[in-house]
């Protein structure tokens, strides 16, 4: 994964609340077996309006999206994150995110920035005309007008994002600890230790 340090540029002044994953990528786009090419389907319903934000000359290709509360609610589809990435979005700023979406975003190197509604209102205003800068190292969002908002981020996520680390690879290094845990389960809760006996069910 590409390391993420700073994301700057124009931002979609979207601002909508409860943007669900069916809005981000409708279900008929979920039939892919690869991760690429989903940008075409991103916000498809909204983009049927010829005056939509996402296809406007001014905003098309912006790396940042500013949205309202509960962004990414709904399904667990990681396609939502892949679609945003494929349309060039590398950061989403909102007052809150659905838990599953923020996990999916993180695992694909998309930065989710949580800021209070007042900050979002201000950033939506600024984004209409000017760029925004997100500095992950400093944990700040700034504008050309001296606005400076600081945000919180989980230190582990920050570390992984800044170094482009692969989480599966990191966990595989903990194989011995996992094996140790499995031995404990076999002893203490044997009924959880085995699930499907493939030979028996074949």
């Amino acid at each position: 994964m590409e390391p993420v340090k700073e994301i700057s540029g124009r931002a979609y002044p979207f601002g909508q609340k409860n943007v669900d994953t069916d809005v981000i990528i409708p279900s008929h786009w979920l039939k892919t077996i690869t991760r690429e090419g989903l940008g075409k389907g991103a916000f498809e319903t909204l983009r049927q309006n010829p005056d939509n934000l996402f296809d406007s000359d001014e905003f098309k290709g912006s790396p940042i999206l500013v949205a309202g509360d509960n962004f990414g609610c709904g399904s667990s589809r990681e396609h939502a994150a892949w679609a945003l990435l494929d349309m060039g979005i590398h950061a989403v700023i909102a007052p809150s995110f659905s838990d599953i979406f923020s996990g999916n975003a993180f695992k694909n190197g998309i930065l989710t920035v949580v800021l209070p509604q007042e900050a979002i209102d201000r950033l939506v205003e600024v984004a209409k005309t000017d760029p925004i800068d997100i500095d992950l190292e400093a944990q700040t969002v700034t504008t050309p007008f001296q606005d400076r908002f600081t945000f919180e981020i989980d230190p582990f996520r920050k570390h992984c994002l800044m170094h482009g680390l692969d989480e599966v690879g990191l966990t595989l290094e903990r194989g011995d600890a996992i094996s140790g845990f499995e031995a404990e389960v076999r002893a203490d809760r044997p009924f959880l230790a085995h699930g499907v006996d493939l030979a028996a069910s074949a």
Binding site: S76, I100, K107, N108, V168, L172, G175, I178
Partner: peptide
Amino acid sequence: GIGTSEVEHVLATQT
């Protein structure tokens, strides 16, 4: 519920 990267993580590590 989990996303596809987490599906991969569970398949590979069971955690």
